[in-house]
Design a protein around this nucleic acid. Structure first.
Lengths: 329, 329
DNA sequence: TATGATCCATAAATAAATTTTATGTATGAT
DNA sequence: ATCATACATAAAATTTATTTATGGATCATA
């Protein structure tokens, strides 16, 4: 049974070919190094260092052993990283950005699933428009964001998570409420209450009008979905919103909808994070839970664990989506 | 900087999922294990074991760490072996067998070259006929033998080292001494002093006669080369012997020789050792010096060292042979 | 449901190891 | 010759690891 403490001191001494330097690296004094090396050589019945002049140099045996010891301390470093990762996973912080509008109804489920597995990780939830959230990633305020894929950015990786339908909402008294469907031309004649700049919904709606060579008549714009709903209810204008966000209002008939001439507008809900940027273990864990992490980003996990996690994550994701649908209906 | 002592105790505890068993393996008491694990967990701010009933089991973190720690202690084992090897190389024993007859004149050189490189290794030199030396390998009395390849054995590996010429020797007064060459038929009419059974020389001479359908007229047999020389000198009979062994006698004309009708009889000098048997580091070193070790037998040497050694050995061998020729002439 | 065995935890005492302090010696540069 | 550098040594101090002794929980079993 090797004395790995001795080996560590030997390793530093061999690396530097200098006991004093080794002592500095190890935060001990030079006589401590001398003593430990001596004791180690004694235990092995071998000589690893020879003094020539006022310098020490490795013997053949010492060199041979040094080659071996290098690897063990490289490996030790891996273990230290693994421990650090586990610690962060136990008591780290997940800085998560979302859009209030539509993420709200499945965000709680995602978070509670995550907290279930990593009860010690604190979660910091940040809200804003899709564009704001992309900026929050770039400025390192958040590490991961669940947002609409509104605008691409070369440094941000978007991974599609699910799709949300955007529907037209009008006041129940509005003529459109009686019609099965309306044309884009019809819509262009109406006053529109638009989501704020940077919103994914707004982007899709602008594209809708543009595809017909039209521009929407924007009455006002806001980021507050509640405000939009209220204005539409009062007949101040029409708007477009994620279907899930107005499920109750439609059921209770406080808002009405109409199809847009056979078109279906979908919003891609994506998980976004910075490309080529180190992800904290909590962020990795979150993405792994969603099965959205590239394998190359998982280097420090044990391979066995990783495979199991990937398979489990795939299952979890499917179940999660089912659960969300069930719980929100 | 990880406490590898803690890690070792953790490793044994994890392997056994039992602190008491770990303590036994480590030759310490159970409270020592408990205390060290506790201190380790504290240092890492993680929990590696949980108690369930009266048993302990690994947490996820503990399992993860265990997977890592396995490798480090596997590797430690390699280092221990390397140290053991180096130690044996420093103070081991080389048990070497030889044939007195012809090996004598280059054996001293081989040994002094070896002692030069491994001054601490004791050398035990054993002498006997080729066959006796093969038996000495099989009975583990010797590890390596420098002998004539007289008889093969399935468990013994022979590696040709050099060749020695066997010549006819006769008394200077013998009629053959005046003739340039003699036929095998001529030889068959003479009384022959034969080397003992198991000798490589004897084997080649028997083959020589057999190839002509003849049998030698053996006056007597002995393993003692000096005795053979004296008997031949006195004209009691003729004999065959390795040329190098009678160099002086031929020069001083106390013995004469004659060619055997255009034939040249060579004896293969080989280095022999047991196949599929672990070789001690001194034996390996000896064979490496002669560049005669199969690469697969060198597993524990560092690769860099090995390559250098192989190249150096090749050079050394060539020089050694040159040197031997020079010194014995 | 007592009983004993097994297994881990804790605490105080002890032992072992590592490290420091203080100092010495040799070497090489100026 | 002198000084700075670098390792060695010895004794003392400190830190770390281990043991001894004991307690508590669990589980099988009689």
């Amino acid at each position: 049974m090797l004395n790995l403490n001795h080996l560590r001191i030997f390793y530093h001494a061999a690396k530097n070919q200098n006991f004093t330097a080794a002592a500095k690296e190890l935060f001990i004094t030079q006589p401590a190094v001398s003593a430990q090396i001596k004791s180690f050589e004694n235990d092995c019945s071998l000589t690893f260092f020879k003094k020539r002049g006022r310098k020490v140099h490795l013997t053949d045996e010492g060199y041979n052993l040094y080659e071996y010891s290098k690897k063990i301390f490289e490996y030790e470093h891996l273990i230290e990283n693994a421990i650090e990762e586990m610690r962060e996973l136990k008591c780290g912080l997940l800085r998560l950005g979302t859009t209030k509008a539509y993420a709200r109804y499945f965000m709680p489920f995602m978070i509670s699933t995550f907290r279930d597995k990593y009860p010690e990780i604190k979660i910091q939830l940040d809200e804003g428009s899709s564009l704001e959230m992309i900026h929050s990633l770039l400025s390192f305020r958040n590490e991961v964001a669940v947002i609409a894929r509104a605008e691409d950015h070369p440094d941000v990786k978007f991974i599609p998570f699910t799709q949300e339908e955007i529907i037209l909402i009008v006041s129940p008294n509005h003529p459109f409420a009686k019609r099965g469907s309306v044309s884009v031309q019809d819509l262009a004649k109406e006053s529109i209450i638009m989501k704020e700049l940077g919103s994914g919904t707004r982007k899709r709606i602008n594209e809708l009008f543009a595809s017909c060579g039209l521009t929407p008549d924007v009455l006002m714009e806001t980021g507050n979905a509640e405000f939009i709903k209220q204005l539409v209810q009062r007949g101040e204008g029409i708007s477009f919103i994620v279907k899930e966000a107005v499920r109750t209002e439609l059921k209770e008939k406080t808002l009405a909808t109409a199809k847009i001439e056979g078109r279906r507008i979908d919003l891609d809900v994506s998980v976004a994070y910075l490309k080529n940027q180190h992800l904290s273990p909590p962020a990795k864990a979150f993405l792994t839970m969603l099965d959205m992490l590239e394998p190359k980003d998982l280097t420090l996990k044990g391979i066995g664990t990783l495979m199991a996690q990937m398979l489990a994550a795939r299952k979890r994701k499917a179940e999660m989506m089912k659960d969300i649908k069930r719980k929100t209906k």
